[in-house]
Design a protein around this nucleic acid. Structure first.
Length: 202
DNA sequence: CGAGTTTGACCAGCGC
DNA sequence: GCGCTGGTCAAACTCG
């Protein structure tokens, strides 16, 4: 089994980091660039040993902007963050030789987590979500909320939770990749596309 | 009525 | 096995 490294103890330490700008995660107020969307869908992996040399740093203190982000990688990891952080336990993509082939690990889609300082728990990322559960977690006064993407064929999930230490910070964890376009994005884009279609007749 | 939320029950994984 | 914990289900409920 994998234990929590000493560097992960204490609050606000994320096991893995990837490049993120101040307008990540995507919201309607801060739409993501294509590059950011790509990094969100296929998060860059940084080995846990690299993490020792990374320090959690606040990117911005303003309301509703990203503070930090974490992407879950290919290696099995085990995080226990005393209720402030989502637990990711033994996520193994089958590459580990140490694992017995007997036990089939069920597929766990990639996860991306980020912290934002916001008064709003649910930040508008353009997708429609249906809440399907709420749990109180250990060592955190704030409950954790579970959402699923409402699109029929899409089973992307996300969890939302506030830090117990810093109530102003919301941790959002996405699990999976949307298999459909963002409706609100299309909504705003369609007039433009129509105009382009019209112009392309000439 | 339809869509989304609330909330306790249920279940699976893990450690002892 | 047993208890704890976190994730999900689903019936009841709310709201437009």
């Amino acid at each position: 089994m994998y234990s929590t490294p000493a560097c992960m103890e204490g609050d606000n330490n994320f096991p893995y980091f990837f490049e993120a700008s101040s307008n990540f995660p995507p919201s309607l107020n801060h739409p993501p660039s294509i590059l950011e969307q790509q990094s969100m869908q296929t998060p860059q992996f940084i080995s846990s040993s690299d993490h020792h040399h990374h320090h959690h740093h606040q990117i911005n203190d303003l309301d509703g902007v990203l503070l930090s982000a974490v992407a879950e990688g290919q290696n099995p990891i085990n995080i226990h963050e005393e209720g402030d952080q989502m637990n990711i336990v033994s996520r193994n993509n089958g590459k580990s030789a140490a694992k017995k082939k007997k036990k089939k690990k069920k597929y766990v889609p990639p996860r991306v987590a980020f912290q934002t300082r916001s008064d709003e728990d649910i930040l508008d990322d353009g997708y429609k979500w249906r809440k399907y559960g709420q749990k109180s977690v250990k060592n955190n006064v704030h409950p954790r909320s579970y959402y699923r993407c409402t699109h029929h064929t899409c089973n992307v999930k996300k969890q939302i939770q506030r830090l117990s230490k810093d109530t102003g910070i919301v941790v959002t964890t996405y699990e999976g990749i949307h298999n459909h376009p963002c409706e609100k994005l299309m909504e705003t884009l369609s007039p433009l596309l129509k105009q382009l279609q019209f112009l392309s007749r000439f």
